[in-house]
C-alpha cells in the first residue's frame, strides 16, 4: 500500500503537487504558529482566514486573480484589526468579531453577482487537493523563503516581542515592525494554505502544532522546530490515510494534528505524575 502510494505520488502531478504543498503549508504555518500561540493572537489568524473569503469573492466578481485579492484582504484585515485595537482602545476580539462576519457577508453578496462559473465554495472552506497547481507550490515555496528570511533576521526581536511586548519596546526592540511583519506573515501563510486546508481548517495549522510543541519546547527555536516536524508528519500521514481511505486530506491532517496533541499531552501528564510519585 505504501509502495503504491509513493508510486502514485511520483507518477501523478496533482498528487505530487498536493504532497509538496501539504509539506510546505506545514513548514510555513509551523514557523508562524509558534508566535501566534505565544502572543495569543490565534483569533487574528482565524479572522484573516475567514476574511480571505471576501477577497476571493471580489476577485471572482472583478475577474482579478483571486489569490492576490485574498492575500490583500487578509493583510488588510490583520492590519486593520491591529490598528483599531491599538489606536482606539477597542478589544481585539470585538474588532475581529465585527470585521470577520463583515468580510464573509461582503463575500457572499459579491458571489451572488458572479455570472457563470463559480468555484466550489465547500472547496474554499475545507480545502481541495485537486485545486493545487504548480503555481501554488511555487507561491508556498516563496512564502516559506520569506518566512525563513524574516525569522533569521529578526529572531531575537520576535522572541522579545512575543515574551513581553511592553518591555521589548522599552529596550528599543522595533516592536511595531515585528508586530506588523508577523501579521502580514500570518495573513500570507493563511492565503497560501487555503487550497490545501481551506478557510476554516487553516486555523488548525496555525494553532495546533505550536500548542503541542509548547508542551515540549525549552526555547523558541525548539518550539518552531517541533511545530514544523509535527506539522510535516501529520501532513504526510494525512495524505497517505486520505489516499488509502479515500477521504479529503485537509480534514484528515487536522484530525492527526489533534491526535498528536492528545498523545503529547497524555505522555507529558503521565511523566509528570510519575515524577511526582
Amino acid at each position: 500500500m505504501i509502495t503504491q502510494f509513493i508510486g502514485d505520488v511520483l507518477s501523478y502531478e496533482f498528487l505530487r503537487n498536493a504532497m509538496i504543498a501539504a509539506i510546505l503549508v506545514s513548514t510555513l504555518t509551523g514557523v508562524f504558529s509558534s508566535v501566534v500561540v505565544l502572543r495569543k493572537i490565534e483569533f487574528i489568524g482565524d479572522g484573516a482566514a475567514h476574511a480571505t473569503f471576501g477577497g476571493i469573492a471580489f476577485g471572482l466578481l472583478l475577474g482579478a486573480n483571486y489569490i492576490v485579492m485574498a492575500a490583500l484582504t487578509a493583510v488588510v484585515f490583520a492590519v486593520a484589526v491591529s490598528y483599531f485595537t491599538r489606536r482606539n482602545r477597542l478589544s481585539e476580539s470585538s474588532v475581529i468579531g465585527m470585521l470577520l462576519p463583515l468580510s464573509m457577508s461582503l463575500g457572499v453578496i459579491a458571489l451572488s453577482f458572479v455570472r457563470g462559473y463559480t468555484p466550489d465554495v465547500m472547496g474554499l472552506f475545507f480545502g481541495n487537493i485537486l485545486l493545487v497547481t504548480a503555481a501554488d507550490v511555487w507561491l508556498l515555496a516563496g512564502a516559506n523563503l520569506g518566512a525563513i528570511i524574516f525569522f533569521s533576521l529578526f529572531f531575537r526581536e520576535i522572541l522579545y516581542y512575543a515574551y513581553d511586548e511592553k518591555m521589548a519596546r522599552h529596550y528599543g526592540v522595533p516592536v511595531a515592525f515585528v508586530h506588523y511583519g508577523t501579521l502580514i506573515g500570518i495573513s500570507l501563510s493563511v492565503v497560501s494554505s487555503v487550497k490545501i486546508a481551506g478557510i476554516i481548517l487553516v486555523t488548525a495549522f496555525l494553532i495546533i502544532p505550536a500548542v503541542s510543541a509548547r508542551l515540549l519546547a525549552r526555547s523558541l527555536r525548539s518550539m518552531i522546530s517541533i511545530s514544523v516536524v509535527l506539522g510535516v508528519t501529520a501532513s504526510v500521514l494525512g495524505m497517505f490515510f486520505s489516499y488509502v481511505l479515500n477521504m479529503p486530506p485537509g480534514p484528515v491532517i487536522v484530525v492527526l494534528l489533534f491526535v498528536q496533541f492528545l498523545a503529547i499531552l497524555s505522555v507529558k501528564k503521565l511523566l509528570g505524575s510519575k515524577e511526582n510519585d
Binding site: L38, F154, R156, E157, L159, Y160, A162, Y163, D164, K166, M167, A168, Y171, G172, V173, P174, R214, L215, A217, R218, S219, L220, S222, M223
Partner: peptide
C-alpha cells in the same frame, strides 16, 4: 512584569534583553 510559566525563554535570554539597546538590531 510579564510572566508565563511555560513560555520557552531562558533566564539568560531574559537578562540579555536588557542589553538589546546597546547591541542593536
Amino acid at each position: 512584569p510579564e510572566r508565563s510559566r511555560d513560555f520557552p525563554i531562558s533566564v539568560r535570554e531574559v537578562v540579555a534583553m536588557g542589553l538589546y539597546k546597546e547591541n542593536g538590531p
